[in-house]
Amino acid sequence: MSHTFDEVVATYRTFGHRHYGEDVTELQHALQCATFAQAAGEPAEVVAAALLHDYGHLCHALGEDIADHGIDARHEEIGYALLRETFTDGIADAARLHVAAKRYLCLRDPGYEGGLSDASRTSLHLQGGVMSEEEALAFEREPHFALAVRVRRYDDMGKVADMPTPDLEAFLPLLSSFVRQA
């Protein structure tokens, strides 16, 4: 199962108004993550991955407050399954690995966990908590682990209420450059 480029865009337009435990909508979060990455001078792949990493949140019907009910929707796996045939490996893997990157950073970066939002701390525990050393070593062998860690940093930043950003249309040419060629 996958989504075409047009279906991905339509999904953001249709469901982007949802919240997921933060003070921003899914679309605002995606646009903020991409805007922060772009402002930092990141390569286009990081910007595109930052925009799409949470796509799986838009594609489940479990509600906006599932973490408050002790449920992990595994949105990273949902997003990966839908993006992997449409977008390049790096983009799809960033979606798949950004949750693992949070768990990894909690192990490797002293103080990282303390800087997480309340919603991210709640979901961290549902997602397996801080990685073990063995898990971290396996994660470091993932081909796109460094990309996922970079995207994770922007994920943590993209939670600013009422932050102005470019609209989704401004990023569409960039996103389309990462569509797999048939």
Rank of each mutant, 00 (worst) to 15 (best):
T35Q: 11
E42H: 04
G90F: 00
A138K: 04
A50R: 11
G111R: 12
A50L: 03
A100K: 15
P110C: 07
A92K: 13
A37P: 06
R84W: 08
G63M: 13
G158H: 13
L116R: 12
L97A: 03
A34G: 01
H57L: 09
V149K: 15
A81L: 05
M157A: 05
D68V: 02
R141M: 10
L124T: 07
L107K: 04
L124Y: 10
L27V: 11
S117Y: 06
E76Y: 10
M157R: 14
L83H: 13
Y80V: 09
F139T: 02
D89G: 14
G129I: 07
V149R: 14
G70N: 05
L137E: 08
K102A: 14
D23K: 04
G41C: 00
R103G: 10
C33E: 09
L62H: 09
E140H: 13
V24Y: 10
R103N: 15
P110Q: 11
A94R: 10
R84S: 13
R153D: 05
G128I: 06
E64K: 09
G21P: 01
R103Y: 04
V151E: 12
I66S: 05
E142D: 03
F87W: 11
A37L: 01
A100P: 07
D156G: 00
A34V: 10
A136L: 02
E135F: 07
V130D: 04
R96K: 06
L52Q: 06
A40Y: 01
I91N: 07
D89E: 15
L124I: 07
P43L: 00
Q32P: 10
D109Y: 11
F87C: 07
L82N: 05
E42P: 00
A40K: 03
A81Q: 13
D72G: 12
G111P: 03
L116D: 11
R108T: 15
G79F: 02
R74N: 08
R96P: 00
Y80F: 15
E22N: 14
L126T: 14
S117K: 08
D155F: 13
H57E: 05
E142V: 00
C59F: 02
C33P: 01
H60I: 06
R84Y: 07
H69C: 11
A92T: 01
Y55I: 14
E133S: 01
A95Y: 08
A92E: 05
Y112E: 14
G129K: 09
E140Y: 08
V149P: 05
S120I: 03
I66N: 05
E134F: 07
H69P: 08
H29Y: 07
R152Y: 06
Y104A: 04
H29S: 01
L82T: 06
L97K: 07
E134R: 14
L116A: 05
V99S: 07
T25R: 06
Q38N: 12
A48Y: 00
Q127F: 13
A39M: 13
Y112N: 02
A101T: 02
P110D: 04
A119N: 15
L83A: 09
V160T: 10
C106I: 03
L126K: 08
A48V: 03
C33R: 12
T35I: 03
C59I: 00
R121G: 15
L107Q: 03
Y104I: 02
R150F: 03
A34E: 00
Y55L: 14
Q32R: 12
A30F: 11
E64L: 01
G114N: 10
L62D: 10
